[in-house]
């Protein structure tokens, strides 16, 4: 059971660094939302920054891979993303086709390199 819960300190960190900083924006939207114009410049800038931060997260996982992913050579991680993206575009933006082909590139590449 203690394995399941782990360290109580980590649960406090989850609340302070994860839950509160995340939920605050939803609750602000609930409190202030009715008076805001959805097409305003401020909201548009916020959306662009939020998208770019998400892109940064994607890049971070590829550039500084966590756990088992670190065992995959750089060229295979980047190659999987590039090939996946090309297939995604060719299949009229099918998320499924993109994900599957990216995974296949990585797995076949790893098997081939031994």
């Amino acid at each position: 059971m203690s394995d399941f819960i782990g360290d109580w300190h980590a649960l406090v960190v989850l609340l302070v660094a994860g839950v509160i900083p995340n939920q605050i924006w939803r609750m602000l939207g609930l409190w202030l939302g009715s008076g805001l114009d959805e097409g305003s410049d401020l909201l548009m800038w916020v959306k662009a920054v939020a998208t770019a931060i998400l892109a940064g997260v994607i890049a971070e996982i590829l550039v500084h891979p966590p756990g088992a992913l670190a065992s995959v050579p750089d060229v295979l991680r980047y190659g999987a993303l590039v090939v996946g993206f090309i297939v995604f575009m060719l299949t009229r933006r099918s998320i499924f086709a993109g994900v599957v082909s990216g995974e296949v590139v990585m797995l076949v590449g790893k098997w081939w390199l031994g």
């Binding site: 548009m44 891979p65 992913l69 993303l81």
Partner: peptide
């Protein structure tokens, strides 16, 4: 572990309809 960057990239790209979204995604990467 590779599922995360792949599914995030493609689902964000799919929802990027305006130039600002596409640029934010590309430049962010």
């Amino acid at each position: 572990l590779l599922l995360t960057p792949l599914s995030f990239l493609f689902s964000t790209a799919r929802n990027s309809k305006e130039l600002a979204d596409v640029l934010a995604l590309g430049l962010g990467l």
